[in-house]
Design a protein around this nucleic acid. Structure first.
Lengths: 180, 180
DNA sequence: CTTCTATTTAGATTTTTATCTAAATAGATT
DNA sequence: AATCTATTTAGATAAAAATCTAAATAGAAG
């Protein structure tokens, strides 16, 4: 068990411990980004970016949110943090979010939809991370992005609208900013 | 400036990002440890330990507190933390300890003694880290360990006793446990 | 269905890293 | 001073990783 934590930690450290990858992390932390843009901003060939991304994925640091575009995996980071810094058994104060992530998701994929309302809301909050603010998405693109998580994109799309995470107007969708 | 932070971060991540070095860090975090013991507990040759230690030193993760023995460099860790996570200029709440470290020390070396009492006390608190609890040190060994920091070991030894960090009894010194 | 473009995979080359053996250095002991 | 022991440095070898070129794959557009 302890061995697993150490492995997770070294994988993380090695993945993050390089100028280019750190740069990539910095960029994807600000929002989902595609490979060519990463290559341009970091200043390396696209093939190199792909290799870096793969390592970062292995380390649970990024996920593919839309086709060919990657984003910082905050849930994975959260998991790592818990695994490494908090004792595994006692005083583990798991949040609803964390429990839902653990039960219903597998990296970027949604294993199945929960039934309970509070849990559905968490899933919706998680799904909406695949979209940027102040961008208009045609329904087709919304479907596409959601399909990355689960085949039943229509159900997930409805979920996002029902819980107020996205707004639809004349077939165009926009992310609704959460109230702070 | 930003570049420096990135370099410090990658150096740190790479240094920590390996099973053996992580193991070494875990051991020296519990107390000063010599090379042969590290080699034994980690299960590699001593020469390999030396190389690992050198990388850890470069990354400011360990310091040589007594001859041939190493310890986790908590001040360096603190510095790294500040450099990476806190904005360099504004809202930087530097503690007395941090300021004294920055002014009067250079890694494991003491550049010169402060004049002010509060600062002297911090230096003494820093020096006493080179000693373990419940161990009796003859004066000669105390001098030896302190000489790693500065040639004037007698002055530093007096400082430790004056400020109640070490107790002397018949030429034998012992670390005094700080009151929590 | 075919072409076009974007992205990923494979293979080869160069660089970096880890580990070993053997030699050098530094302190302690006699 | 000379030897003895503990530790570090050098040099060599092997393993891992980074980056490139070129080929393969997948989706979109015509």
């Amino acid at each position: 068990m302890e061995q697993e934590k150490i492995k997770a930690l070294t994988t993380f450290l090695q993945a993050a411990g390089q100028r280019e990858r750190l740069h990539i992390l910095g960029i994807v932390a600000e929002g989902a980004t595609a490979v060519p843009e990463l290559a341009r901003r970091v200043g390396v060939k696209e093939t190199a970016v792909v290799k870096h991304i793969n390592r970062l994925k292995q380390a649970n640091l990024v996920t593919e949110t839309a086709p060919y575009t990657y984003q910082l995996n905050q849930d994975g980071l959260e998991q790592l943090n818990r695994a490494v810094f908090h004792r595994g058994d006692s005083n583990s104060q798991e949040t609803l979010r964390q429990r839902v992530m653990r039960h219903y998701t597998d990296g970027p994929r949604l294993k199945k939809l929960p039934e309970n309302a509070a849990e559905l809301r968490e899933v919706a909050a998680w799904l909406v991370e695949r979209f940027d603010s102040n961008v208009s998405y045609p329904e087709k693109e919304v479907n596409q992005r959601l399909a990355q998580a689960h085949p039943d994109f229509a159900e997930m799309r409805r979920l996002l609208v029902d819980w107020g995470f996205m707004a639809r107007s004349r077939g165009i969708y926009q992310k609704v900013e959460p109230q702070p």
